[in-house]
């Protein structure tokens, strides 16, 4: 029976762990991705993922889990970015490009010096969701809960500072503070997703489901919720591809997300022609 193919993988406990992490990633990345695509922060999201490498390498060096290492790394990266956005004289993109590619390079140097770190570079770049430990699951669940609650709780503030920062400042909102909180939440979600999606393809889960939902929804809040739904579908599909075909999880999820985008786009087009 074909249905066995659906539940069979979950007779293994490592697959249940992977499923929990996949769902978390599918929820949180598109949630913030809606802001990212509307604020044109795609390059910054990519840079955040790359810049995390030295932090993650250092964490692994002292024996911490990748999720634990992600927390201080994410906070430092977000605050450096917040500073650059406000102070940079050479242009935001240029400053981010210089600093964050250097950090990526530094991460590789650290990994090559300490070659006893038990880590596959390919897994780090492309993601290996099947390797999550039960500790990782708890860490992901707690982090994701914090991210979701913060994003919902500060929804109005995040939306206002994203859409109209000057207007928000004029109305008396502390834009610098909320923007820094936003950047911390964004980098936490990106970096804690690296184990499943990988450094290179985290951008795909951040942007593609959110872009697909922008095509189908009217309001920003609806786009966030629909984006997360698309994200969960993409990450679970990616998980199956990973399990049955032994693909790395990052590329599987990325292509699943792209397929959703194409289906939504075609459906919208044919709907428009029909009506």
């Amino acid at each position: 029976m074909w249905i066995e193919y659906i539940y069979e993988p979950f007779s293994y406990s490592f697959m249940i762990r992977s499923l929990i992490v996949a769902v978390s990633v599918g929820v949180i990345l598109p949630l913030l991705g809606s802001y990212v695509i509307n604020r044109n922060l795609g390059f910054m999201g990519d840079a955040m993922a790359h810049a995390s490498l030295p932090g993650l390498a250092f964490g692994l060096l002292i024996g911490a889990s990748i999720f634990i290492a992600a927390i201080p790394t994410a906070i430092v990266i977000a605050l450096v970015l917040g500073y650059l956005i406000n102070r940079s004289k050479i242009g935001e993109d240029t400053a981010i490009g210089i600093i964050f590619s250097s950090l990526f390079a530094l991460g590789f140097i650290i990994l090559s010096i300490y070659d006893h770190i038990l880590l596959s570079v390919e897994d780090l770049l492309l993601g290996q969701i099947l390797a999550v430990s039960s500790f990782d699951v708890w860490a992901t669940l707690i982090l994701s809960t914090v991210i979701v609650i913060t994003t919902l709780f500060l929804y109005k503030q995040f939306l206002f500072i994203s859409f109209d920062p000057k207007g928000a400042k004029i109305s008396g909102l502390n834009v610098r503070l909320f923007d820094n909180i936003f950047l911390v939440v964004l980098s936490l979600s990106i970096i804690s997703s690296i184990q499943s999606v990988g450094i290179i393809l985290v951008l795909s889960m951040l942007i593609t489901p959110a872009a697909a939902s922008k095509l189908t929804t009217k309001t920003f809040s609806a786009a966030m919720i629909t984006g997360s739904a698309f994200g969960v579908i993409a990450s679970i599909s990616g998980l199956y591809l990973s399990y049955y075909l032994d693909f790395p999880s990052g590329p599987s999820m990325a292509l699943a997300a792209t397929s959703i985008f194409i289906i939504v786009w075609l459906a919208k087009r044919s709907f428009r022609y029909a009506s």
Binding site: S34, N38, R39, N40, K156, Q157, L159, F160, S162, F163, D164, K166, G167, A168, I170, S171, G172, L173, K214, T217, K218, T219, F220, A223
Partner: peptide, 30 residues
Amino acid sequence: KGLIGYVPQREEFNWKFHVTVRQVVQMGIT
């Protein structure tokens, strides 16, 4: 702050932002 309202120049703005008219006006009372 709050006593003064500001309508920005069109170039200052990302008009493609995914919001409805209601949501924009809502921001005034955020």
